[in-house]
Design a protein around this nucleic acid. Structure first.
Length: 638
RNA sequence: GCUGAUGUGGCUCAAUUGGCAGAGCAGCUGAUUUGUAAUCAGCAGGUUAACGGUUCAAGUCCGUUCAUCAGCUCCA
């Protein structure tokens, strides 16, 4: 007999070889029905998996990540089955579950149109009605290859050939359809009650642009119709938050054909940017950073020396001055190196922290451009920390803390990644190993969960990245901490140690916002345009009831402006309701309606953006309230 | 860069099978003087992304380029 420890801590004994599903069934038939996959000793497994030794088992439902995963993976098989029924000539590539649904990459001689997608969706519905059960079976490598070759599934054949020697090769079948798949899958197609094919895109086989472009169909399925409706509503909501749309509506920035990827910031957008930058400066000064500015255009020799010429050239813009070649900076570091070298340094100066809000230009592929999130010119909130090797861990931790402090102000959650040595890199493996280990140690010391992103480091060193999420659930890299042993060598940087000898410093390159532009885009979506008071371009809109109250309104505005509150008066000859609506749609945090009562010395009628509530408040109390909200960078208006 | 889609006043969108480019909002002018999410009237605004082609006639069909969107690739 074996013992199985369940999630609630209860322990059950069974014959060895019992399956996950049988365990679920033993507990209750209802649970068995809702069990989509299992987590056996921490590993995601199929419900058909048999258990042969003492184990811990978690039964996963749709509410669990692993359960969703199995459900959607089966969705992708259903999609493939439907396509195969309609177009038997199709060649299937891969069809995984993703965070929100699934996709299948297919190679087919017809161009999939929205009409065809509808047809496929209908076919999927029909197949579900057949109530097919899924079966798992294993084949030897030779048998598997023979099977897929017979079917003409060239992509599957390639997948099998690339599987490791000892891999178990499993297939899942449902009715006439079967697919190479590691699983897990759900038991039966009937729980799929709602199906939606969402979008269509091209995707290279193996993600390599040298390979054939396949057609990728994205879809999602749910056990309940209402869940699909909710999901579609969520997508609509997310679209409303799109920073490109809000940027236009709130008059923050614009993009023009004349400068693809080069955003134009309007007066209101510049206010927000400036607030972000002021906040940044304040937080950095407080932590001993100094600020520098380095030029945008620098001689090519510098870029050759820094390694950018060899490792970053395809992303750089060039120009010529007096017959010499110059480059427009894609990064701030080489300029920072030159500043460091302008004088000698003692170990007593270290760590030396030099920040720079530097405008960099990078040639991004035109298909990659995306609003403010992905541009060709952006301001990095850069800083270089020059330090002794034994200061590394402490300084990395300080940067992690700084990032956390800054993200907290906005109420962001984030994910952390550790990126290791890329192919196109400089420096020895030993140095890379030391640097990567230092970053890992810092993360572990802070107890931060992180994911390894192999081969994604900068060409000069490994990095820790902070990823923030946008309204559509896409994540964007913002902060980054990069450890660099190369630039100090290349630029022959040194400091005089306590021993009176020259030593090599180590550098941390780091950003918190990453790019002011991207961060701006993310906060627009994060707040849905409803900025907290400290960031709002107009903090108070004063709306006089009639012309007779204009002077009084302007007096109040002057009082508020005098203490630094961004105040406007809407003197347009429109009805009150119209101007309130306008201020509301501009997402102005506070509105003051002033008329006879206020002019006669009464309290002010304050309307709050989020609640629409109106309350009376004296001018003095209002000043106090607003000042407090602004200084504390409060996320609420109340 | 690749695959697919899209491109009409500042914005959102109309315009049968090719047949006089139109509306709402925003803007301007006037009337109205308003108490918490849209007052009324008038005016103005377009080489239909650009260039080329087919046609008696092109927003509409064809070609090229550009930009945008969804992905891929890449990345802050």
């Amino acid at each position: 007999m074996i013992t199985i420890t369940l999630k609630d801590g209860s322990i059950k004994t069974y014959e060895p070889g019992i399956t996950v599903l049988e365990v679920a069934n033993d507990i209750s038939t209802g649970l068995a029905k809702n069990t989509l996959a299992g987590e056996l000793n921490g590993k995601l497994v199929d419900v058909r998996q048999s258990i042969t030794e003492d184990s811990t088992l978690n039964l996963l439902k749709f509410e669990d990540e692993g359960g969703k995963h199995a459900f959607w993976h089966t969705g992708s098989h259903l999609l493939a089955q439907a396509i195969k029924r309609l177009y038997p000539q199709v060649k299937l590539a891969i069809g995984p579950a993703i965070d929100n649904g699934f996709y299948y990459d297919i190679d087919i001689d017809v161009i999939i149109t929205p009409e065809i997608m509808e047809k496929i969706e209908k076919e999927m519905g029909k197949i579900v009605k057949e109530g097919l059960a899924l079966n798992r079976y294993e084949l030897s490598r030779d048998e598997a290859l023979a099977k897929v070759n017979k079917e003409g599934e060239i992509y599957k054949a390639e997948l099998i050939e690339n599987l490791p020697e000892d891999a178990i090769i499993s297939f899942y079948s449902q009715g006439e359809f079967s697919d190479l798949c590691a699983g897990p899958h759900i038991q039966n197609l009937s729980p799929i009650k709602a199906i939606k094919l969402l979008s269509l895109a091209g995707a290279y086989w193996h993600g390599d642009e040298k390979n054939k472009m396949l057609q990728r169909i994205y879809g999602i399925t749910f056990p309940k119709k209402s869940q699909l409706e909710e999901y579609l509503t969520l997508l609509e909501e997310a679209k409303k938050r799109d920073h490109r749309k809000l940027g236009k509506e709130l008059d923050l920035f614009s993009l023009h054909e004349e400068g693809p990827g080069f955003p134009f910031f309007h007066p209101k957008g510049v206010i927000v940017r400036n607030e972000l930058e002021n906040f940044w400066r304040q937080e950095h000064q407080r932590r001993g950073y100094q600020e520098i500015k380095t030029p945008t255009i620098l001689n090519s020799d510098l870029w050759k020396r820094s390694g950018h010429w060899d490792h970053y050239k395809e992303n750089m813009y060039f120009t010529e001055i007096d017959e010499s070649e110059y480059a427009i900076k894609p990064m701030n570091c080489p300029g920072g190196m030159l500043v460091y070298k302008t004088k000698g340094h003692s170990y007593r100066d270290l760590p030396l922290k030099m920040g720079e809000l530097g405008l960099v230009h990078r040639h991004e592929l035109h298909g990659a451009l995306h609003g403010l999130m992905r541009v060709r010119a952006f301001t990095q909130d850069d800083a270089h920390i020059f330090m002794t090797p034994d200061q590394i861990e402490e300084e990395v931790i300080k940067v992690i803390d700084l990032a956390d402090d800054i993200y907290k102000i906005f109420g962001f959650s984030y994910k952390v990644e550790l990126s290791t040595k890329p192919e196109n890199s400089i420096g020895s493996d030993e140095v890379w190993e030391t640097a990567t280990e230092a970053l890992r140690k810092a993360l572990e010391k802070k107890g931060i969960d992180y994911r390894i992103n192999p081969g994604d480091g900068a060409f000069y060193g490994p990095k820790i990245d902070f990823h923030l999420e946008d309204s559509l659930g896409r994540t964007w890299q913002c902060g980054t901490i990069q450890l660099d042993f190369q630039m100090p060598e290349l630029f022959d940087l040194n400091y005089i140690g306590p021993d009176g000898e020259k030593h090599r410093p180590v550098i941390i390159h780091r950003t918190i916002f990453g790019s002011i532009e991207r961060f701006f885009g993310i906060i627009i979506e994060h707040f849905a345009g409803k900025f907290p008071v400290w960031l709002a371009p107009v903090q108070v809109m004063i709306i006089p009831v009639a012309d007779a109250h204009h002077d009084f309104a302007k007096d109040i505005a002057a009082e508020l402006s005098a203490i630094g509150i961004r105040t406007s008066v809407d003197t347009r000859d429109e009805k009150l309701g119209y101007r309130i609506r306008d201020a509301q749609m501009q997402k102005t945090p506070y509105m003051l309606v002033v008329g006879d009562k206020e002019a006669a010395g009464g309290d002010l009628a304050l309307r709050v953006r989020d609640s629409g509530d109106v309350s009376l408040i004296s001018l003095e109390d209002l000043k106090k309230k607003l000042t407090e909200k602004i200084i504390t960078k409060s996320l609420t208006l109340d």
